[in-house]
Simulated assay, not measured.
Amino acid sequence: MVSVRADARRNRDRIVEVARDIFRAKGYDAVSMDEVAKAAGVGAGTLYRHFPTKEDLYDAVLEAWAERVNGAVERALSLDAPSRERLMAWLTDFAAMLTEHKGAAARITAALGDPGSPFAAKCQRYLGANGRIIEGLGPALRPGVEPLQISRLVGGVAAVADTSEMSPDALVAMLEIVADGLLAREGATPPSVSASR
């Protein structure tokens, strides 16, 4: 006999799996909780017991995606390559994660700095990852670069890519411009504090 706990876990996992596919295909705003429940083959009560709001469900969908962040940072920093190549490896992975689910890039970027956002934990993970990149690349980056700046820059590029017909090559070209702006230049001075707010 299957335990109630195992059955509940299976239902939760199924809901998250189905919701991931629907959110990826349609975007957050176009998805209803009823649609997810029907597609997952569960009743509305079961869905709401696990996820009281659509934001809670979306947060669960994003969790597995966000867990890949640390691996991507480690991969970029461990490359035996020039700083620009290591930075590009991270920026490319970061943008790919943000555009994996339709609408996620704009949502995550808009939530940066909002502790009340249902995506605040994910934002903190990305900010922490960008902090590790700054620490890992050290003097290769221009003075004064902050995690929030990198998150917003890449988030903005990813949001444009997510809502347009931008080719992968065009996305990489935009990320290269971001990378070049983040890298130190001889004689560079830190930006003013107000520029990063």
Rank of each mutant, 00 (worst) to 15 (best):
V31R: 06
S167M: 05
G144S: 03
R9G: 06
G27Q: 00
T163R: 15
R5K: 14
V145S: 03
V42Q: 09
E74K: 11
A72V: 08
S3H: 10
A60F: 11
S151Y: 01
A37V: 01
V160I: 14
L79A: 11
L62Y: 12
A195S: 15
L171C: 13
I22H: 05
I150F: 11
D34M: 02
L57Q: 07
R5I: 12
T46L: 13
K38G: 08
E85W: 04
V154W: 03
N130R: 01
G128E: 01
S164P: 09
W65S: 15
V73K: 02
I150N: 10
P147A: 00
L98E: 03
F51Y: 15
G43H: 11
T46H: 12
V31I: 08
D180Y: 09
S192Q: 07
V2M: 09
A19N: 00
V145E: 00
M33R: 12
A96F: 09
R14I: 05
T46D: 11
A120G: 07
T99A: 06
G144H: 05
K54T: 09
V160C: 10
A25I: 09
R142D: 05
A111D: 11
P115E: 12
S164G: 12
I22A: 02
Y126C: 06
A159H: 06
A184E: 04
V4F: 13
V178I: 09
L182I: 08
E100L: 14
A81Q: 09
E165K: 02
K102M: 07
S117C: 10
